[in-house]
Nucleic acid binder design. Sequence first.
DNA 1: CGGGTGTTTGACGTCTGTCAAAAAGCGTGG
DNA 2: CCACGCTTTTTGACAGACGTCAAACACCCG
Lengths: 213, 213
Amino acid sequence: MQSAAIKVSPAQIRSYGIGVSAGFIRPLVTRNYLAGTEIYAQGELAGELYVVEFGAVRIHRLLADGRRQVIAFHLAGETFGFESGGTRTFFAEAITATGIRPLGAAAGNLGTPELMALALRGMLKAQEHLLVIGRQCARERVAAFLLDMAERQGDDVTIELPMPRIDIADYLGLTIETVSRTFAKMRAQGIIELRGTRSVTLKKRDILTELCR
Amino acid sequence: MQSAAIKVSPAQIRSYGIGVSAGFIRPLVTRNYLAGTEIYAQGELAGELYVVEFGAVRIHRLLADGRRQVIAFHLAGETFGFESGGTRTFFAEAITATGIRPLGAAAGNLGTPELMALALRGMLKAQEHLLVIGRQCARERVAAFLLDMAERQGDDVTIELPMPRIDIADYLGLTIETVSRTFAKMRAQGIIELRGTRSVTLKKRDILTELCR
DNA sequence: CGGGTGTTTGACGTCTGTCAAAAAGCGTGG
DNA sequence: CCACGCTTTTTGACAGACGTCAAACACCCG
């Protein structure tokens, strides 16, 4: 369980403990997933919406020959699981050790205005991502990704990437090699700093911003 | 007005007539737009949702240097104008002579379950389009586009493309030249037939389907 | 201190983009 | 109804960014 690629807080450990030990018949509030495990699969009956308690989730889809597109990443506090129709259209997997909490609402029913807003926000994100993937070069795509991750982590200068390079590549419509080379070039130019492979410090945010115009 | 690139039915002419001649103070039910005119612009205050009565609408976004991504096309009967937040995130333009009818609902408020379903459907479409743009080659993208257009036109063998090549290119994340070459190759292989530039007959739908796996 | 996964780097190929010009459509006007 | 001119589309030649294949390297965990 501690094989998670990211540090686990005491609260998260506690959550794990509950999930593992307690034997209630009613489902536990938080469900826990190990790194790399499936939350739901394409084709399944659409279930509920979820909030990420800790960890990170990737939503993706596959082509017949294995090509993969990561549709979205979801970090702590974010909601996922919206569907249009009765079945799951995508796969959802835990990237690192992850806890999620089911919302009362079903995937296709937006009961409250808050949920509607979240659904519309999800649509917007997907549509904006279309511009990135459809019309920007590798360097610009990586810049957009880094800025997006930074914004979702409180606009800190140093950000943690919970996902491996291959996920970033599949999210940006690139190959792992291109992502790696782009990171390397940005580092060489002093735009970013890499501490290990999952930690990035944005040294020249203005240049990254400029790349996303 | 007859400069529209697509034939205009008597009902459409009638609608135009009303729009042009009547001087009511209350807004007319159907609003008419000439080919190429703006329906709303990025940055505007988000208004209402619209249903396309006839014609076709493109939703798009621009980068600073003019690169453009077409997010979606909307044909007769389809609803557009969803927004997440108070302002328009994209441009909406009439492709051909187009009539749209405002729904009562505002862009950010999904009053009814029907509207929620439409919003979720829009999200799904955008997410599926991510896979096409992010992971498929030119040939596969064009195949996906043709099948999508066919499905939305009653799965007829012959489909009408209301948009010029440049819109298709910007929708698929390609250049106009690549789209043209891909069409040419498909025609040479007997997969499609082109009658004029806006009319396509799908001769071997199975091959197109196979390309989208 | 290894072994395995994940990442980086290198060499090379190719698909798509770019630039340019010809051809085809389409609307206008004679 | 046909000729003209503009726009859109097609075609061609060439270039470049990114993908592919392969190997070295780093990191993580036992």
